[in-house]
Structure formats: structure tokens, C-alpha cells
Design a protein around this nucleic acid. Structure first.
Length: 375
RNA sequence: CGGCAGGUGGCAUAGCGGCGAUUGCAGUGGGCCGUAACCCCACGACGUAGAAACACGCUGGUUCGAGUCCAGCCCUGCCGA
């Protein structure tokens, strides 16, 4: 059993599969369900670590592929690891590069050995294999690291998904073998299998055998319909051990989060809040607000009257709109901070609702405000 | 007063005689899901598509056809007095 991570199941909702948990890592405790902001290049874009922390974030992500290319994991290691390098002293999770196998699909070639990438920065060629991914993640030193997988495209056919999923399992075995310090970094396995239940079952059966400290559900929220997404959630979390954290990779809209939690998921991450912030979009208690809209030109009220974040306490919609239209970096900072606070608070409220056994009521109440259909 | 260069969307620009006129910025709206993302898409605007009419400074002319060629005028900029 890994000493790097401990998971306590604190409470279970009686009318759904939602659960409250607590993960303990070398850099601190994480209350679950938890939303994890993404800081791909060892920075949550537009945010200082201390401000990320103030939003209530308990753990952030960083990325193997990006940091391997720049600055290079040896440099991060020489700096004393990611926590020291980026001045974030709470837990960190590093993604393995498997998503880049998908998102940079046209710039790489997959073989049994791994994925051969042409760097999006300078075109140089890099083999990202299970061994390489884990070596980089060992250098980075995150509390939770991910086994190297292939995130297959949602429209791939069954035959491809079957082969890819089986290969990901073989890659998992190699990832475990390559892992140098399981006492300080917890290695999670990733379930694949696309939208085929039997392939998901096969994937789960194989990866669970390794008795890892946690498991992720990968390959969803990659452009499929919401129905397909929920379809996988109906059975996939149940295929994973109850006493281990379950992580759905890549979700960050409130509805996707609620659905995941309802089906027994504990962790989730997404670029959504940070990216849409830089594109002028805010998540508010009343639904999404596109701050670029002309109707906010003279709106001197806060972005979200129900929000306690720094942005909402000090700035108006009119000012945020002005900053955004003017191309000022400050708009990215303020909107990002707000969106991160929004999702942290959502996580807090979800945890509270599970503690009080009223998760479904909270979900309904939230949907009534956020997804109301007027305007 | 003379010489030169120009006048095309809000601004800036492209445009062998076939234009229902280009592109960028600005504008309006939308998207974004394990971050190649301060990015991408759409639309409107000069410039009219229900019909008719007007039409790239203005007025004429050449031509089957003119933003494009010609003439005059108006305006702008630069240079010289």
C-alpha cells in the first residue's frame, strides 16, 4: 500500500452515489468532492499561487508534456521540485501527457513503445512513453501522478478503442514498474474504453488488479454529447474500488460536475474556469455572464452579487467589461479569480450538502438558478 | 499659387475593365472541457437582395460592362514658393 496517499470515505449520500471523502497527501489534506484548477505550465494562468489558494483551491494540476518540453523536468527537479519551483505548497497532481496524445493528435504517432511527438514549440521530436512520463513526473515531484494513457478521440471506432484501451493497460503496468518513489507520490491508473461498456468493464477489471492508491476515468468530456457522458457515468465509477479516490479527468462545468458527483466521483479538473475567464466569460450564481456583452456597459453592480471573491467585492461589471474590451491583463486576472472561487465554492457547497444528506436538493436548487432559461 | 500623392465600411487597407468589393483593427453575438487557446467561429458595416432605384469624393465621358480608363471640379496630405 502506498504511503503517499490515504483516502477516508467520510459519508455517503443516501439517495445518490455521492460521497464525502478526505485525501491525505504529503503536502496536505484534500476534502472531496474537489475541483482542481489546472496550471499546465507550472502556473494557473493569470494567477499568483497565493491568490489561487485564496479561492479555496486545495490541489492544482500541472502537465508532464508541457514541462518536459519547457523548461525540462531536470530543471524543475534541480529547483527542488514543482512545489518549490512554482511556490505552491499544497498538493499537486501531474497529468501524464495522455491528453496531449489526443489534443496534439495530428503531431504525433502512437506505437506500443509510446507516443512520438513533434513538439508544438519547435518541432523537435520527443518520445513520450510510460517510462518517460513517469520519469518526468518523478522529477516534478507531484503528490499524485498519472499513469501514461491514450485519451482516444470520442469518434474512434470500437476496434480502435479496444486496441487503445488494452494498450493503455499495458502502459499502466510499465508505468508502475517505472515509478521510483511510490512512498512520496501516489500513482493513479486511468480507465479507458470509450463509450463501450464492455470495454470500460474490461479496462477497470485489469487496472484495479494493481491495487493503486486511486483511479481515474479518462477519455470522457472530450467532445461527446452530454448523454454519452452521463451514459458512462451510470456504470463506470462503480467499476472502481469504493475505498479509493475516483477522478474524472477534464470536467469543469457545473452540470458535468454535479453528474459526476452524483455517480460517485471524488475529483475533477478542467481548464474551463481559467480559459473562459480569459475569454471574457464568468460563471455566476445566476448562470454564465459574458462580460463582453454591450448590456453591461453601464452595469455598476458586481459580477455576481452572491459571490464573496475579491473581484466581486471590489469591481463592477462595467469595469470588468472595460478592462476586457481594452485587452487589459487585469481582466484575465479578476475573471479567473472569480471563476476559480465559483467552482471552489460549488465544491464546498456540494460537500456540505452531502454531509447534510441533501445533495440532490442542492443540485436541483443550483440548476434552478444557474440553468434557468430566461434571458 | 505651383508640383506630387491620394480620396473605398468607424479607422486603416486591397482591388489585370467583369464587384453582389479584400484584409486587419474596432463593433455585435456565440463557442471553449485531463490548456498548441489574451484563442476560435459567425454576423453586421462600405452597399442595395420583397420590388424598384441609387452605386467605391462629385459631375460627365469612353465601354457590352468603370472602383479600375479619360476630363473637369471638390477635398486631404506632403514638398516648394
Amino acid at each position: 500500500m502506498s504511503k503517499a496517499l490515504e483516502f477516508e470515505l467520510l459519508n455517503k449520500d443516501t439517495r445518490s452515489k455521492a460521497r464525502r471523502g478526505r485525501i491525505t497527501t504529503p503536502h496536505g489534506v484534500i476534502e472531496t468532492p474537489v475541483f482542481m484548477p489546472v496550471g499546465t505550465q507550472a502556473t494557473v494562468k493569470a494567477m499568483k499561487p497565493e491568490d489561487v489558494e485564496k479561492t479555496g483551491a486545495q490541489i492544482i494540476l500541472a502537465n508532464t508534456y508541457h514541462l518536459m518540453l519547457r523548461p525540462g523536468s531536470d530543471i524543475v527537479r534541480a529547483a527542488g521540485g514543482l512545489h518549490e519551483f512554482m511556490n505552491w505548497h499544497k498538493p499537486i497532481l501531474t497529468d501524464c501527457g495522455g491528453f496531449q496524445v489526443f489534443s496534439l493528435g495530428h503531431m504525433r504517432k502512437i506505437t506500443e513503445e509510446g507516443a512520438l511527438f513533434a513538439s508544438h514549440i519547435d518541432g523537435s521530436r520527443h518520445m513520450l512513453s510510460p517510462e518517460k512520463s513517469i520519469q518526468v513526473q518523478n522529477d516534478l515531484g507531484a503528490d499524485i501522478i498519472m499513469a501514461f494513457d491514450e485519451c482516444a478521440p470520442p469518434d474512434a471506432d470500437r476496434e480502435y478503442i479496444a486496441r487503445s484501451q488494452a494498450r493503455t493497460t499495458r502502459w499502466l503496468e510499465r508505468s508502475i514498474e517505472a515509478h521510483q518513489n511510490p512512498d512520496r507520490q501516489a500513482l493513479f491508473g486511468i480507465m479507458q474504453g470509450g463509450f463501450f461498456r464492455d470495454l470500460r468493464e474490461e479496462s477497470a477489471r485489469e487496472i484495479v488488479k494493481f491495487d493503486l492508491p486511486g483511479y481515474a476515468i479518462g477519455g470522457i468530456s472530450v467532445g461527446e454529447t452530454k448523454e454519452e457522458y452521463i451514459g458512462v457515468l451510470e456504470y463506470a465509477p462503480d467499476l472502481l474500488p469504493e475505498n479509493k479516490p475516483r477522478y474524472v479527468m477534464g470536467i469543469g462545468t457545473p452540470d458535468y460536475i454535479f453528474e459526476a458527483v452524483e455517480h460517485g466521483v471524488d475529483m475533477f479538473d478542467c481548464v474551463e474556469p481559467t480559459r473562459i475567464a480569459r475569454h471574457g466569460m464568468a460563471m455566476t450564481s445566476q448562470g454564465r455572464v459574458s462580460i463582453k456583452n454591450a448590456k453591461y456597459e453601464r452595469d455598476f453592480g458586481p459580477l455576481d452579487p452572491a459571490c464573496d471573491c475579491y473581484t466581486c467585492r471590489h469591481y463592477s461589471r462595467a469595469y470588468l467589461r472595460h478592462l476586457f474590451k481594452a485587452g487589459e491583463t487585469m481582466s484575465h486576472m479578476l475573471l479567473t479569480e472569480h471563476n476559480l472561487r465559483f467552482l471552489s465554492r460549488l465544491s464546498e457547497n456540494i460537500r456540505k450538502s452531502i454531509d447534510e444528506d441533501r445533495f440532490l436538493e442542492y443540485k436541483e436548487e443550483f440548476y434552478g438558478r444557474y440553468y434557468r432559461r430566461d434571458k
